[in-house]
Design a protein around this nucleic acid. Structure first.
Lengths: 196, 196
DNA sequence: ACAAAAACATACCGACTAGTATGTTTTTGT
DNA sequence: ACAAAAACATACTAGTCGGTATGTTTTTGT
């Protein structure tokens, strides 16, 4: 039960990479087999079908990555507005897995799969809601600690900021250059500073 | 030269509708033929291939729609910040062609096609840059007229607002409900009011 | 050690894809 | 009216897709 788990993990990781760069529907199972060096029999031993694998990617790759990469750093930083800005700066400018030309994996999947598969929508909604909740909670905590204005509506701000992130990721894809990230981050900083 | 032009227009319009709801790559030419009642011979008389049709959709359907539906109303409204808010409110809440579950046509195409076809990227960039320029110009005009603070960076604001729009459209797809639009619009209003 | 189950391998299939080859009909200019 | 060109129609192809049927190898529990 050790080698098999490694095979499964390898499929999920490599498939995630392919889907991130090429899109879900245009990543064929044969593509995945070619890059993983796994045969079709092995693939279909681990997953009933392509969609089950796609869901497993969200659950077993994307959700843990969100938790470890974004949620936990957010919880550690005491200043919520600084935490949010730093998170965005890190995601856009420093993260070396995310590429400007490929956008945001969660946003990509959302846009591509939402019309086709309800299970994908549900899983992706859980993903984003976890992010939303932690950001909102941080802002609320900041209100109590005096770091955020009392009249700030935490959920609204969170939604506004996350929308901006998904949107600028799409702009980055279009321009194929991180240079659009800089004016976005400046505007974001000014927006966040106005909440103090 | 009249009937043929009508056939071409019909293909482009119906194909645009299909692509908006289903995505470009997952809309087959047979799909388009079935909904237009046009035969394959006719289709390939009007377009060399699928991508040429896709580009024609951007040029002949989406660009004019942007100009007539968004650019011109924006130029007419003297208060730029009100113009921007009204435009967003109209796009999100009142426009009855755009559906919450299908997102923004331009954002969808950008995300789907950017890794695959440079011509699509270029055409979509022209589309968005036209929108960006008009919004920025309106803000600059507002600065001179005293309706916008002098220290506001027009291009930054434009990019921030457009990113938010693309992003919230994606959230709408995910939640499949216009209810997320309302808190976004409230946050947008507050953001814009802070620029006065 | 050895049977049973888990894990993987190979060959194949029907459905669908964009595109083409080769026609026929309709429109156009004179 | 009539030839030429434009506009459309039909049948087909080569390739790709997700998925399956049927094996063989490897691991596991006893």
């Amino acid at each position: 039960m050790k080698k098999a788990a490694a095979t499964r993990r390898d499929i999920l990781q490599k498939a995630f990479g392919l889907i991130y760069t090429k899109g879900y529907q245009t990543t064929s199972i044969d593509d995945i087999l070619a890059t993983t060096q796994v045969t079709k029999g092995a693939f279909y031993y681990h997953f009933r079908n392509k969609d089950e694998m796609g869901l497993a990617i969200i659950e077993e790759i994307m959700k843990p990555a969100l938790t470890e990469g974004l949620i936990e750093p957010l919880l550690r930083q005491p200043d919520p507005l600084k935490a949010i800005y730093d998170m965005m700066y890190g995601l856009l400018m420093k993260n070396d897995f995310l590429k400007v030309e490929y956008g945001c994996p969660a946003a990509n999947l959302t846009q591509e799969m939402t019309p086709w598969n309800e299970d994908f929508s549900k899983a992706l909604e859980e993903l984003t809601q976890q992010w939303q909740k932690v950001m909102s909670a941080a802002i609320e905590k900041g209100k109590k600690g005096g770091l955020v204005r009392k009249d700030v509506h935490a959920k609204q701000v969170t939604l506004f900021v996350m929308s901006g992130y998904w949107g600028i990721r799409n702009f980055g894809k279009l321009e194929n250059s991180k240079s659009v990230y800089l004016p976005f981050l400046k505007a974001l900083k000014q927006y966040l500073d106005a909440l103090r």
